[in-house]
Structure formats: structure tokens, C-alpha cells
Amino acid sequence: MIPDVQLIKQGAEARVYLGPFCQRQAIIKERFAKAYRHPTLDKKLTSRRVIQEARCLYRCQKALIDTPTVYLVDLDQSVIYMEYIPGISVRDYLVTEPGQEAEAQHRVAVAIGKALGAMHNIDVIHGDLTTSNLLMRETSGAVVLIDFGLSYVSQLIEDKAVDLYVLERAFVSTHPNTEVMFAQILEAYGESSKASKQILKKLEDVRLRGRKRSMLG
């Protein structure tokens, strides 16, 4: 790896480092070979995901959606260099600072909903929406969408609904008793997303799928 880097997180996909890039601090996201995966499958997934991530980040950036700026994509090494944004994840915000005022939580929920609506408006599907992948800017508290490792472009209502469903599941499992906040996210989403009526209706269908859904809903 490049010298002077500091590992800040190892996700399921990649190791994320903080290090220098052209005289500034940058996030360096390196997808390393997964020993458990068949090499052919691993190469296919890794190269596809590096490209998708860079493309979707760029697409969001063009549409003025708050996301890290891509500096450089090194396809051979499966590394993406991108803007470092100081802040904490929504997960840490909810876990380490419990019992915030309802008003503060509401503000965050609205910001999340608006960001997701804007992202879906340009047909970007995040693919891995969790509270770990929503960052709050240290400076302004604005919500930044990060980690587009599983993202792709699609116009399908279905894909957008599943995207929301993935977030809902991550939300209620990671942060018990935050159903109110998720409802606020959907409300803000509904106001900012173009096809929100159909998407939210589809979300209800998606919720009812699966083999072991509770009869009670």
C-alpha cells in the first residue's frame, strides 16, 4: 500500500484507509482479494463493484447530491481515492448519543429522506443502505451518502423499493425503538422523490415477501 496511511475501517468489501492524495487527506478504499471466494468470482465481483461505485458516486456528484468526490480510480489495484469528509455515521450518532431531542432526530430523518429521494430521482440504487453508510458532516451536520460498493443504476420501482426496505431492516434491527424516525424518513422521501407514491406502495409489497413474515405484519 501507499505509505502514511491509516486503516480506519474494514467492511465486508474493502479496507478503508485515511491517507494523503495530492497534498490533501483522502479516503483510500481498497478492495482486496477475498480468500473465501473462488478467484474467478472474486475478480468479477470486485472489478464490477469498483466501476459501479465510481460511476454512481460521479452520477450523484453531478446531480449535486452530497457524496464524496472521486479523485482517482485505480482499476488494476481495485482502489478508489475519494474525498475525506470529517463526521460521524448516523449509526454512531444514534448509538452513542441516545435520547437526543425529538426535534434533532427529526431534522436528521428529514435530511436522510431528502438525500435518498434525490438519489433515486437520478436512478441510483445504493444497494447497501444502513445507518453506517450515512455520514453526518462535522461542520454542518448535513447528511452525506457514502459507501456505494453495491450501488447500480436502475429505473425500476422495484429496485428503489428494495433499497428502502434494506434501510428499514437495518434501521429497526440496529436501533430498536426508532420506528418513528424511519417513518419521518419515508415522509421526507415521499416529498422529494418523483415516483414516491408508486415506490412507497411497492415497499409495502416487498415487506410482505419472504417465507417467514409474521402473520401480524
Binding site: 474494514q10 467492511g11 465486508a12 473465501y36 471466494r37 449509526r91 444502513t130 453506517s132 440496529t174
Partner: peptide, 19 residues
């Protein structure tokens, strides 16, 4: 097996990283 198990290991790892 290689495909479906890779999917399972990946999502398990994602949960570990998240939690």
C-alpha cells in the same frame, strides 16, 4: 455452492462490520 455460500459469507461479514 461456491456462489450461494459466497453470498452468505459476504452478508455475514457485512453484518459483522456494521455491528
Amino acid at each position: 455452492q461456491e456462489t450461494v455460500f459466497a453470498m452468505l459469507v459476504e452478508t455475514t461479514e457485512r453484518a459483522m462490520a456494521h455491528i
